[in-house]
Amino acid sequence: MACQESPDRGFDGAFRDLYEQYKDRVYNVCYRTTGNAADALDASQETFGILFRKVSAFRFESKFSSWVYRIAVNASIDLKRRSAARPATSLDRLRSPSDDSAPIDFKDDEVEGPEAAATRHELQAEIQEAITRLSPKMRAITVLRYNESLSYEEIAECLGTSLGTVKSRLSRAHAALDRELTPVLDRHHLR
């Protein structure tokens, strides 16, 4: 892939296409892996920086999208590791109405009712919190499997592991989710 853009030409051509094609996937993986909008933005920026620097060296020995996911997951995990000393993001931040990265409201609050909408937002924030409490590896595999709908083979490529590792890690992620998520779902009376 030729990505020899000149800075004078701005951000057009192949880079722009690549960015447009992957920005949603990259940002969503970063958001779900880091657990908040500010870190997701930093991790996405880092992901595209790495992508653009290294794209010419990509040898197509794996799926391109798997490589992109891999960079995004690693950038998110690295960022969380670096900021581990900082105070944890509060749930309030995740729920903040001024946060322009809050999940899209596909449902019409007028139809759904404001109370129901508020409950749904709260539930989503709590589910996200439960995912964020998983270890980085378990978080990554959960997000790739259930938010990005990747196959085991694609996940193995993304994470640079074997299929067996993907299976066992996912099984352990479910055991951890059982601990983290069950109280949330019980509280919201979800089956």
Partner: peptide, 8 residues
Amino acid sequence: TLERVPVP
């Protein structure tokens, strides 16, 4: 149930 997040 987690919805896609719009890119800022």
